[in-house]
Nucleic acid binder design. Structure first.
Lengths: 111, 111
DNA sequence: GCAATACTGAAGTGATCACTTAACTATTGC
DNA sequence: GCAATAGTTAAGTGATCACTTCAGTATTGC
């Protein structure tokens, strides 16, 4: 379910916005409330909540409400899924280059 | 220059679209012309060229025109930069959890 | 209980996005 | 040289995005 293309889509879309990446960055240093997340951002609390909802829908962030405070934390498995998608494509390319290199080296030996 | 936040922004924005990710996926298996990239996609050539321009502007893809054929290939360093951004945040979080675990284990020993 | 805090939700707006069509240029094969 | 191929460019459109403001609700501290 982590490699579900629809989920992947939501994750990359979530990461596409600089404000949301800044929020993820902040959360990578530890859990935070909505107001704490909002504090360094030059936008209304309301806008931050909307970004937060995007992050939560993507699975990158999980939140939990206790009393009037919503505490947010990163979901590392989701980050790992996005990371993995990129990594697989890069490795596929690099392995291809390696094979090509080997092939060229071999044909050189045979000449 | 690879960790330039503006470039990172362009890269994540480029990866946010499923058609563009499909193009990157195709290119991870080897270089391709614009028409080859377009072939599996249910959209006009023109739309594909527009997506390709986004990918190229982000640095994820490099293209080279020979005669009337534009050949596209992946730029693994750019993929690595996006990968690295995610990886750093995930690791920061996981290291934090580890330290927290150690701390809890220690205070347990002392009880 | 009442003010301050911490969010939440709806409605609106202007900007950007992902396309389309259509007209065009440049290159190649015959 | 002429048709087919390969891509490019511009203009337009409807959908989605990233906000805003404003009016609300629930919780907490005193």
């Amino acid at each position: 379910m982590l490699h579900d293309p629809a989920q992947l889509d939501l994750m990359f879309q979530a990461l596409a916005d600089p404000a949301r990446r800044q929020m993820v960055d902040r959360l990578s240093r530890g859990p935070a409330s909505v107001s704490q997340l909002a504090e360094p951002l030059a936008m209304s609390l309301s806008a931050v909540v909307q970004h937060l909802n995007v992050l939560e829908a993507s699975g990158l962030v999980r939140t939990e409400k206790l009393g009037r405070v919503r505490t947010c934390r990163i979901e590392p498995q989701a980050l790992r899924a996005a990371e993995h998608w990129i990594n697989e494509r890069r490795l596929a390319w690099e392995r291809r280059l390696d094979r090509l290199g080997d092939f060229l080296a071999e044909t050189k030996d045979e000449s």
